[in-house]
Design a protein around this nucleic acid. Sequence first.
RNA 1: GCGCGCGUGGCGGAACGGCAGACGCGCCAGACUUAGGAUCUGGUCCCGAAAGGGGUGGAGGUUCAAAUCCUCUCGCGCGCACCA
Length: 934
Amino acid sequence: MSQTRRQYPFHVIEPKWQEVWERQQTFRAWNPGEIIPAGHPFAQRHGCDSGALPPKCYILDMFPYPSGAGLHVGHPEGYTATDILARYHRARGSHVLHPMGWDAFGLPAEQFAVKTGQHPRKATEANIATFKRQIRSLGFSYDWTRELDTTDPAYFKWTQWIFLQMYQAWFNPDTSRAEPIDTLPYPSGLTTDEERRAYRDGRRLAYVAEMPVWWCEQLGTVLANEEVLDGKSEVGDFPVIRKPMRQWMLRITAYAERLLQDLDTIDWSPALKEMQRHWIGRSEGAEVTFAVAPASTRPGSPAPAITVFTTRPDTLFGATYMVLSPEHPLVDPLTTDAQRPAVETYRRQAATKSDLERTELAKDKTGVFTGAYAVNPVNQEPIPVWIADYVLASYGTGAIMAVPAHDTRDLEFARAFNLPVRVVVQAPGSRDSIGYVDDGVSVNSGLITGLPTPEAKRKITAWLEERGLGRRTVNYKLRDWLFSRQRYWGEPFPIVWKRDARGRLHHEALPESALPVLPPHLTDYKPTASGQPPLARAQDWVNLPDGAMRETNTMPQWAGSCWYYLRYLDPRNPSAFCEPAAERYWMGAAAAAHPVPGERAGAGPGFPASEAPATRPGVDLYVGGTEHAVLHLLYARFWHKVLYDLGHVSTPEPFHRLVNQGLILGEDGQKMSKSRGNVINPDDVLKDYGADAFRLYEMFMGPLEMVKPWNTQGVEGVYRFLGRVWRLFVEDQSETEFDQAMTADASRARTWLDQVRLSPAVQDAAATPAQLKTLHACIRKVTEDLDHLRFNTAISALMVFVNEALAWECKPAAVLREFLILLQPLAPHLAEELWSKLTATFPTPPGARATPAPALSYQPWPAWDPSLLAEDMIEIPVQVNGKLRGRIRVPAGATSAEFEAAARACEKVQPFLAGKTVRKAIVVPGKLVNLVAV
RNA sequence: GCGCGCGUGGCGGAACGGCAGACGCGCCAGACUUAGGAUCUGGUCCCGAAAGGGGUGGAGGUUCAAAUCCUCUCGCGCGCACCA
């Protein structure tokens, strides 16, 4: 490919403009109060007063983890989409914030460190350098002055600071908000400081708990539920086991309801919202307390009771046994001596079972009878208590009442162990009531017999509540977030451990002045022999002079990405995570105070009022892969809400609009992977076709959100298009001279490029109506398509324009000028080069609007003029009985009757009307005529 | 199993319920050329000489009119997966 002649000298053009943008800081965004230099193109368009900034538009990419493998063609897909929109909105007059950074803490760099002893920072820096070079070579309009790195102490100082905000807060259930921990009321019984501390520490948003966690021996760390797939670690695919450990947790469950409710306020795809809803997993039901039968109670000990959660309290009369999860605390006290050996064996097996084994065994229910009986509160019937691993310790109360007639799992279990099945819900029609799990009518159920399920639920719950036997409850699948990792390459906790007078350990927050807490220097990054995290190796770091010991866990990789979008707003601020004025401006809370400038609000003919950009609360557009549909996006929303409650941010949601780009598959239609050998390296594509072609192709492949295969021949297609654009503007002869000069002396490429002349067909001439129509149709299509993220059809519209314009004898400079403004967001390098040539010859073409700024990136987006698009005569199809039979040409303003008359008169239509009566004529003015004839 | 999404030429994909296949790839023919894997021109859903007929995974339905809306069904993809 590199042998053949280039379509146009992108290899000279692209570095040239990237340098210009860098030197000029063209895409720098300005904070309120910042001094804007008069010479900057932003100032030339909007003025220098940063107290009166135009409306903001925050366009954000999910920042990458800079891996050693370098950029993948999937990364630039989203980045190109956001860059096009950033450039488009800049042209439309918005003040665009479009930043990039690095999510650089993480396991690969640490594992490399464990192997080589090299500090992870070194690998991280090298990877960032590669990523940055690759991303820059694509010509994205990022404001690089806001670049972030989550591993930079100046950044993670504030990650630690936010952790402290959570540590120093509790969730007030009365207000449903986080509040400072000083406002926590204490129960009257707590008198000593120790008691109050224990109470307080148990209510913080960041708390410590002994939790059964997934421990991964190979990685030497615990993992969150979400990081474990089928009993293997998501990273590395190593086996994991269940193990109780002391861990930091974040109380995300307190926000379950708000995380769910507020989904309704944001503009995300329904599929994505659905995934979050499922993850949160709200279900309404009741907790019901079953007394343990006196015979099963140990003499002398208080009578225990088993509380279960059920979404079907109406089936209480059908409960024929109960099941505790193997880990349930009542298993031990309830188990009879006769059953104890069997129960113990079963519990041991359940503890060592991996998730994979549990899943595989899902079809065959297992369990053991404890020997104990509980009493059904509605009918005093004694029912046996079993343990089984199909009941999860972590959901609800860890215990269930089993209603085999109306629950599939209970039915399987009952059949496996020959337990009774009692129908209490009558299925509608002739359906079998056994195994019927949907709503029906209660039967054999005492006071609720005869009631439809919803009413039965209400009545029985009220009955239970009156007697103190149960209460209405809402349960969530969402679990608290396991927030500590036994790793080196992560943020240390700003926490120390101290002993009280009785020698008991407790934790305390370090003061803000101690931030950032830097990790110690190590030579060995492995966990210690005793299973302690690697930080424990640095004893002089761990042990402080006052006898306190530092926390040796680190935060998970998710931490840094939970708030990076806020740091971009004020990335170098040493005294706050973000200055409030900047936060209000960029997150849109202050939007109402800024009137929309006339140029945009005016909504000229080509900008219908509904299209006038409205400032949105939060990030205007966030683009990234679906792999973050739940975790990152839920965690970030959670942190944002905490910061909102504590008054640090002004919007309840961080990301107003979110779009997932679709996966790019290999040329074979398979997922790209090294083992398949179908990985496309962006560097190779750039070398052969240039950045503009690469960008254009990624967008031309199909709708952004769709999964689509790569096709290198497709790249050639858009590359040829860019070649046609080039030839539309330049003179052939001077291009040949350029090639010859390059062969002779490639070192003077920029000079030769400057000598390429504009085609003589480009003239200072008035555009013909046909040319204007071509232009304005293009303006309209590109504008509407970009507004709806339809990049592929926008590109197609540009192609249509170029195909027509190539045929023009005379190419009016004013028309080409507008075309370049449309091209700029998509193929910015080529557009800039041609713009510089065009404006050098035609500084202000007749009929063009005045140019307030010389930089193409700040040229106002053109509006289309509908009057130029209007046709005098239109051609529309004529159908007979819904089938296309002919076409008629009629004046655009014709009446329905005229349309109909013309249709009946149409020669091609006549034969199909012969011998028939037109019963009805459907006339869609300007669209079509359909004659219904019998 | 449950939930969500998607099925249109040889391929990627277009198409406010109103001309199916825009645009691009590929392919065919031609022009310019020492040459063409550059460029330009024309053609390209299927059957048919034409008139015409058929056609958006399949089967029904709503409608004057369905790729588009509804029901069922098949296939593919993604997510969740004993959540009581």
